[in-house]
Write a protein that binds this DNA or RNA. Structure first.
Lengths: 341, 341
DNA sequence: CTGAAAGCGCTTACAG
DNA sequence: CTGAAAGCGCTTACAG
C-alpha cells in the first residue's frame, strides 16, 4: 500500500505548508480559492485518508457518540435506534453501540471505553440498578448525556420517554369499556420506574372503574415473545379466569396470543389482549394487536437532537423530562367480553 | 472537572517519568513490582482515564473493529451480531456498527469513517452491487476484512455463510416427501448470490423429483414479515393453487402465515409453509415454523475469530469459503398434503 | 530498573 | 493569503 499519505505529503508535492493543506481541506475562507481547489484535487488523487485520531487528539472532539441500551435485538430499542441513526447521520456523527443486558459491569466497561475514545456524548437507557457513581464518572469527565426510556433515580439529566402511566390506562380503560371486569397484567418488572409506572397506571384505572385488583392477576416478568408464550399456561390457569390481559409490551402480548392459540382458544375472541409500544409488527400479528403507540421515533429523534445541542453548548435544562404522549391503536386482539363471563 | 489527568500528571506527583508510568500501567515486566503497584494505585486514585486516541496515534492500532450489515433490526443479523459481540467482548475489542440498507453510498461512508478512525478490521455483509473498488480501498489501506452471509464477486476474502443450495433443498424435499406437488417459492432477490443459490436449490430439488417449476410460482421480493404478509393474497391467487410455500426466510414465512390466516385458511393444515434461518421466534410462531437452521451463532463466532486472527497476522487463506451446514427443523407449519389437492 | 527524547498526524494561535 | 512552530497524550527505541 506504499507510503501513508498525510497532510505533509500533499503539502510537499504542492509546495505549500501542512497548515494550508489542513485549512484548504476544511474549506477555510482563509485559503485562496485556487489553492483550495489544487489541494483538494491532489488529496483525492493521492487517496488521502483524514486521520481522525490525530485531529481528535489535537481538538479533543472526536465526532463519536455512544449509545447504550438493554438489547438492540428488542425491536422497541431497534426502532428508537433507527431514528437516532437518521438524526446522527444527518449531522455526520459516528455512533458506537452497546447492549448492557442489564448488567451494570458491562455498561460500565462500555462507558469507560467511550471516555478512552474521547466520545463527545452518550445516549443511554441505563441498566437496572445503575449506581449514581457510574453516572457521575461521565459528568466529571465532561461527557454530555441524555436518557431514553429509563432514567437513574437522583441523577439530573434530560429524559425522553413515553408517559407510561397514562399509556397503560388507555389500554386498561379500553378493555373496561368493552365490558371486561377481570383483567390481568402480564409482564414487566417492578425494578424499573417504567415497570412501576405501568403497574400503577393499570391498578388505578381498575380502581377508578370500581374493579377488583388481585395480586394473582399480576404475572411479573415476561418482556419477550418467548416469555409471553410461556406465560400463557400460567395465565389460563389463573383463579377466576380473567377475560382480558394488559401486557407489558407487544412482544409479551404476541407471545401470549401465540400461547393462547396453541391452547386451542382464540385470542381476540375468547381472550382480549393489549400490547404496548406499537411495534411495526403489531399490525400484522394474528390477530392484529390492539396496542399503545409509545413514540419510539420521537424518543430517538428528540434525544439525539438534545444531545447534539448539549454538545454544542446549548445547555438544555438538567433533569428535564420530555414525555411523549401515547396513543391507543385499536385492532383485532380486543373485543367485547363474551356473554356469561 | 479540574485538570485532566494524564501519564505525566501521575509521573510528576510520584517522581517518576511518564515512560515508567506508561509501562507500569500496562504491566510491563521492565518495571519493578513495587513501582508498578504505586503507579497503579495512584492512577486509580486520581481517576486517570487512558487516552486511546493518543496511544492509537502512536501505535497505529485502535482496538476498534467495524461491522456492517444490511439491517440489524432483522433478527437474522441480530443473532449473528450477538455472537460477534460475545467473541469480541472476550477479546476486549470495541466495535462500531452500521446498517447499509443496501445503499452502496451509505456503506462507503461508513468504510471511510472506519479508515479515518484507524479501525483494525471489518466484518461485513456487503450491500447489493458493492463495487470491487470499494473493497480495494480497504485492502489498499491495510484493513483486514471478512465477509458474512454475502460476498462480493471477484473479491478474494474469507466468507462465512450457510450452504444455501443444500439448505433450501432440505426444505423443498421435505414438502415433496409430504406429497406436495405444487410448491411455490416466496421471497428473496436474485440480485444476491444467496438469492440465486436458494432459487437454484429449489428448482433443482423440484426437477429431481420430476415436479413442474412454473415461473408464476416464484414470488420475488419479500424478506420481511410485512412483505410476506402482503404476498399472501398474491400467493393465494396463484394459478394452479400451490399447496406448499418454500419461503426465503423465517420473517417472510411468518408474515405469509399471518396473511394466510387472515384470509381464513389455516397455515400448516391448508397450506404448508417452510422458513429459513430458524430464528429464535420460529419455534413460538403459530403454527410453530418448520424451517432450516442457518447457523447464525456459528457464522458470527467464526467470522470474528478469523478477523482477529488476520489482525494478529495469522494469515488465513484469501477467498476461503466456510460453509455452515444447515439443518432441517420440522415443526407444525408443514403437513401431509390435503386429499384432493 | 528508570529517564530523556523523538514522533505519531493533525490544528491553532501567531507572525508576516 | 501563507508558513513556522508548538503541542494534543501517548509509546518506543535508546542510553545509562
Amino acid at each position: 500500500m506504499g507510503q501513508k499519505v498525510k497532510l505533509s505529503t500533499i503539502g510537499e508535492s504542492l509546495g505549500v505548508s501542512t497548515a494550508t493543506v489542513s485549512l484548504a481541506l476544511r474549506d477555510s475562507p482563509l485559503v485562496a480559492e485556487a489553492t483550495r481547489e489544487r489541494v483538494k484535487a491532489h488529496a483525492l488523487e493521492l487517496g488521502y485518508i483524514y486521520n481522525r485520531r490525530a485531529a481528535s487528539l489535537r481538538t479533543s472532539k472526536s465526532g463519536i457518540l455512544g449509545v447504550v441500551v438493554h438489547d438492540i435485538m428488542n425491536p422497541f430499542y431497534g426502532e428508537i435506534l433507527r431514528s437516532i441513526e437518521m438524526e446522527l447521520d444527518r449531522n455526520r456523527q459516528t455512533f458506537i453501540l452497546s447492549n448492557h443486558y442489564d448488567r451494570v459491569e458491562k455498561q460500565r466497561d462500555f462507558l469507560e471505553t467511550l471516555m478512552q475514545l474521547g466520545a463527545d456524548g452518550v445516549i443511554m437507557s441505563p441498566a437496572i440498578d445503575t449506581p449514581k457513581e457510574d453516572m457521575e464518572l461521565l459528568t466529571q469527565n465532561g461527557l454530555p448525556t441524555v436518557f431514553i426510556a429509563r432514567s437513574v433515580p437522583g441523577v439530573d439529566l434530560p429524559v425522553f420517554r413515553g408517559d407510561d402511566k397514562f399509556g397503560i390506562s388507555l389500554a386498561t380503560n379500553h378493555l373496561i369499556s368493552l365490558g371486561h371486569k377481570r383483567i390481568a397484567m402480564i409482564g414487566g418488572t417492578d425494578q424499573t420506574s417504567t415497570g412501576r409506572d405501568r403497574y400503577e397506571g393499570y391498578v388505578s384505572a381498575m380502581r377508578k372503574a370500581g374493579l377488583e385488583v388481585k395480586d394473582e392477576w399480576r404475572i411479573e416478568g415476561p418482556r419477550t415473545k418467548a416469555a409471553g408464550f410461556e406465560a400463557a399456561s400460567q395465565f389460563l390457569a389463573l383463579p377466576d379466569k380473567p377475560t382480558g390481559a394488559v401486557c407489558w409490551n407487544d412482544l409479551a402480548a404476541i407471545g401470549l396470543m401465540n400461547g393462547i392459540a396453541r391452547a386451542g382458544l382464540t385470542p381476540g375472541v375468547d381472550i382480549s389482549v393489549t400490547g404496548y409500544d406499537d411495534l411495526e409488527e403489531a399490525a400484522i400479528a394474528t390477530p392484529a394487536l390492539t396496542t399503545v403507540w409509545n413514540g419510539q421515533p420521537e424518543v430517538g429523534r428528540l434525544a439525539a437532537r438534545a444531545l447534539l445541542d448539549r454538545i454544542e453548548g446549548k445547555h438544555t435544562p438538567d433533569g428535564d423530562l420530555t414525555l411523549i404522549k401515547p396513543e391507543l391503536h385499536i385492532r383485532q386482539s380486543t373485543s367485547r367480553v363474551v356473554e356469561g363471563n
